[in-house]
């Protein structure tokens, strides 16, 4: 017993303050920053190398974070440095179309309406559903529960049954083999309910987009209230999205 106490002292306090406590390394690939003025006429190097066709050239350079795997092959391919991945981990949006990054503003997720905030704002219970995919996104969602991120201090918890939940957190492209299970799980959550799609696969099919065995994302089966891009997203990106949805962050929703 004494040994356990000593070890507790040695391990120390590891929970990071949020927002503001996260130090991400230089190598981290957050929200892309575009400089279309550097684009050379007729150059399609970035779009051609993108494995999920997430990059649009016309009418102006744009990256769809719903498809983006954050592999940065576009950065390597671009001859003029028009694309870089910035340090900003905040990327979650309420609408699918808001995931398209262009030069300038990016519209982060806005909070739920007043009634939904009254219900969920201080206590949100989520049922996680892995609907295909590689399990990378659920690992990052599960990591939110560790002492570093300590999700439960914000009143958010994962629960064992959809009947105890206020909503679903869905990962994976939704395989045909998981469609029925996802529908049943959604139906079992009492209304009103929310749905959060986490990761490129759950938003667009990600690396599996277009496969006959998958349905290219959660929105093909259930209405989605929050999109969290990444492959997989950093736990902070998920946390930021959740708290934004609940109206728990004071920062403005639109950033440059």
């Amino acid at each position: 017993m004494l040994k356990a106490f000593l070890e507790r002292l040695r391990q120390g306090h590891r929970t990071i303050p949020f927002p503001g406590g996260a130090a991400l390394p230089e190598s981290f690939r957050g929200r892309p920053v575009l400089d279309a003025s550097r684009c050379v006429d007729g150059c399609r190097a970035c779009a051609d190398c993108c494995p999920t066709d997430a990059i649009r050239i016309e009418p102006s350079l744009a990256i769809d974070l719903g498809r983006c795997l954050f592999c940065a092959e576009c950065v390597a391919a671009c001859p003029t440095g028009a694309i870089r991945f910035g340090p900003d981990y905040r990327m979650a949006t309420r609408r699918r179309e808001d995931l398209v990054v262009e030069e300038g503003r990016y519209r982060l997720a806005e909070a739920l309406d007043r009634e939904a905030r009254r219900l969920f704002g201080r206590s949100l219970r989520l049922r996680q559903v892995s609907a295909g995919g590689s399990a990378g996104c659920e690992l990052e969602a599960a990591a939110l529960g560790n002492v570093v991120f300590d999700l439960s201090r914000f009143g958010v918890q994962f629960v064992a049954s959809p009947r105890h939940a206020d909503g679903l957190l869905i990962t994976g492209p939704v395989t045909r083999n998981m469609k029925l299970a996802l529908e049943k799980t959604y139906d079992a959550v009492p209304a009103p309910k929310i749905v959060i799609a986490v990761g490129a696969a759950a938003i667009s099919g990600g690396p599996f987009a277009g496969h006959a065995e998958v349905l290219d994302g959660a929105a093909s089966v259930v209405p989605v209230d929050l999109f969290v891009p990444g492959h997989p997203p950093h736990p902070l990106t998920i946390l930021d999205g959740l708290l934004r949805l609940l109206g728990r962050l004071r920062e403005p929703a639109s950033t440059r």
Binding site: P51, G132, A135, G172, P173, P207
Partner: peptide
Amino acid sequence: LGYQHRGIECALERGPRKR
């Protein structure tokens, strides 16, 4: 099992491709 089946082996046939 099989719920996670997303057609990986089929998708790799005729590769390698950029994806």
